[in-house]
């Protein structure tokens, strides 16, 4: 069917690669993911609601989404700043620092998790400095935010950076020739230009943070109702062989993830259209 819908093209291999892609994708991604909804449908609506509105589950959603939101907001601010600094200024070791930004992509989450816990625990290098101020970083919601900031940072930097890189200097100069000062140029001209990419970065960072497990479980302490994130709760239910409970929690998260994915695609389509129109 897809073959009949494709546009004329003399290159070979469409049928083969398309067939393989669809087959592999179905086996590895689509069929496995559909089991979540299959399994959820075994429950009645009342059962489902009962599971996902249990206080412990609600608390975990609140924490997962709340902490992810805070972390993504922090990343918008500092990630955009990092992107700006990397694109606009030159300073020593810039290349190395630029490379370091991708660390959370490449570093296994468990390693990131134990490292962050060690650093931000009350005996750790930074935790020790926060202790006298009464700030408890590790084993508290703050620790979760730190871990989620770590995990989400590259998403913001790497979506904003290329847009800033391509941002036409002439447009800034035009603003200056018309009498705008630097701050006015930044707020009225540059910011609206990079806003779609900042929003995309935000959504990516948020989506990643919501599902994050490895880097969080160590630093969170996993105290029920206080520092227990939703993915950890799924894990707990699984350990108790409560498959339906785990699935129900997962189904809610999946739906949220899909909505976020949709939002990301819409954003990219929107900014792509803005760019193409120019």
């Amino acid at each position: 069917m897809a073959i009949s819908l494709k546009r004329r093209n003399i290159l070979p291999g469409f049928g083969l690669t398309m067939g393989f892609t669809l087959l592999y994708m179905s086996l590895i991604v689509l069929i496995p993911l559909s089991t979540i909804f299959l399994k959820s449908s075994e429950m009645t609506w009342a059962q489902f609601c009962h599971v996902v509105t249990a206080p412990r589950v609600l608390a975990s959603y609140k924490l997962s989404f709340g902490a992810s939101l805070v972390a993504a907001l922090i990343n918008i601010l500092f990630g955009s700043l990092v992107a700006w600094v990397l694109v606009r200024y030159s300073f020593p070791c810039k290349q190395i620092i630029d490379g370091l930004v991708d660390l959370p992509f490449a570093l296994p989450t468990a390693v990131g998790g134990i490292a962050l816990t060690t650093v931000y625990a009350s005996t750790g290098w930074i935790g020790r400095l926060l202790e006298p101020w009464g700030i408890k970083a590790a084993f508290s919601p703050l620790g979760i935010v730190i871990a989620l900031t770590f995990i989400g940072l590259p998403f913001v930097v790497r979506t904003v950076q290329p847009v800033l890189q391509d941002f036409d200097r002439e447009i800034e100069e035009a603003s200056a020739t018309l009498g705008a000062n630097r701050l006015q140029t930044f707020i009225r001209v540059i910011l609206p230009g990079v806003l779609p990419s900042i929003l995309t970065g935000f959504t990516l960072a948020f989506a990643r943070a919501v599902g994050e497990y490895g880097s969080v479980v160590f630093i969170s302490g996993n105290m029920p109702l206080r520092t227990e994130i939703a993915p950890f709760l799924i894990m707990t239910k699984l350990d108790q062989f409560d498959y339906t409970g785990a699935t129900a929690i997962a189904a809610v998260m999946l739906v949220v993830s899909f909505v976020l994915l949709l939002a990301i695609n819409m954003l990219q389509w929107w900014s792509g259209r803005q760019k193409a129109a120019d």
Partner: peptide
């Protein structure tokens, strides 16, 4: 199709494991 390829990125790793347990 392109969006579906990105799907695993949007899924929590715990859920990624869970689906295979369910299967």
């Amino acid at each position: 199709l392109t969006a579906i390829i990105d799907l695993p990125f949007a899924v929590s790793p715990v859920i990624s494991g869970l689906v295979f347990v369910l299967l």
